[in-house]
Computed example of a mutant assay.
Amino acid sequence: MPETAATAPNAEPFRSSIMQVEPQWIDYNGHLNMAYYNVMFDRAIDEFWLELGIGPGYKTERHGSTFTAECHVRYLREIHLGDPVQIFVWLLEADDKRLHTFEEMRHATEGWLSATSENMSLHMDMNARRVAPFPPDIQQRIAGVAKSHSALTRPEGIGRSVAMPSKR
């Protein structure tokens, strides 16, 4: 079976496989260390990239990949050792070279929101190590998913910035 598991985009956010918090990821506060939220978000994005046809096989066969240009993580509720985690991914926008995604990390059985991550990824020509357009077939697949996801309710937190609360 080819790397792309989906034949048609679904009108729901992408759902990652269920992941487990690993013992070495727990910090001295007794919860998931901030760095490992990014590891889990990144693993989910790797799964989503497979759906778009831009996973490891794409790099090997077509010499393309993605690099993260920007990332904004919000930590909303602690995750602990043994908590099952699932990540939901929205493809908010895309053009010929960029993917704007939003991810929610949720407790996989209880459903509560632990963290969000908003990202801008760039398509790279790995031979030139420069930003380059996606091939037309990949652009078409991405456009289909983006169109499907545009019909979804947008999750809270998109476009948030880091700033001190204003005093009134």
Rank of each mutant, 00 (worst) to 15 (best):
E22M: 10
H123V: 09
Q24L: 00
F134H: 10
E118W: 02
I26Y: 02
G157H: 11
P23N: 01
W112S: 10
C71D: 04
E156Q: 15
S117Q: 15
E103Q: 15
H72W: 03
P56V: 01
E70L: 02
E12I: 02
L52E: 05
R154N: 13
F102W: 05
Q140T: 12
V131T: 14
Y75E: 11
R168K: 11
I142S: 04
A69Q: 07
K97Q: 15
G53L: 05
V131H: 03
A94D: 06
F102G: 02
W25H: 03
D96S: 14
E104C: 05
A6M: 11
T109N: 10
E78V: 09
T4I: 15
A128Y: 00
A128D: 12
R168H: 10
H31C: 08
G111M: 09
A5C: 07
L76E: 06
G30H: 11
P13V: 02
L113D: 08
G111P: 08
A69C: 06
T153V: 14
R15Y: 06
G144Q: 13
T66D: 00
E61N: 14
R168Q: 08
M1R: 10
M124D: 06
Q139R: 14
Q140V: 02
V131L: 12
L92G: 04
P135H: 08
V145S: 05
M105R: 06
F48C: 02
P13H: 00
T7H: 13
H31Q: 08
T116G: 12
R15A: 09
A44C: 06
F134R: 11
Y36K: 11
P133V: 04
Q20F: 06
A108K: 01
R130P: 10
A108H: 05
V131S: 13
A108C: 03
M19L: 14
L99K: 05
E104R: 03
W49I: 09
P9R: 01
E110I: 08
I26M: 03
A128Q: 15
V162E: 02
A128R: 15
H72M: 11
P84F: 00
T60W: 00
R130N: 12
K147M: 07
N29M: 10
M124R: 09
V162Y: 08
D95W: 04
A132C: 12
S148Y: 01
S117W: 02
S17R: 12
P2T: 15
V85R: 03
R106G: 04
E78R: 13
A94M: 10
M126D: 07
A8M: 07
D95I: 12
C71N: 14
A94I: 09
T7F: 13
N38T: 10
Y58R: 10
A94G: 09
H123I: 13
V131P: 06
N119G: 04
R130Q: 15
S16V: 04
F102S: 04
E51A: 11
M105L: 14
M126W: 08
P56L: 11
Q24K: 01
V145E: 01
M19N: 08
T4C: 11
E70Y: 03
R74L: 14
R141C: 05
G144W: 08
M40R: 11
K59P: 00
G159C: 06
P155N: 09
F14H: 00
S121T: 07
R154F: 08
P136C: 04
T7G: 08
G111Q: 10
Y37K: 00
M126I: 13
Q20D: 13
G157N: 12
M40Y: 11
Q140G: 02
S148F: 01
I142N: 03
P23F: 01
Y37W: 02
V21Q: 01
I26N: 03
R15E: 11
L152A: 03
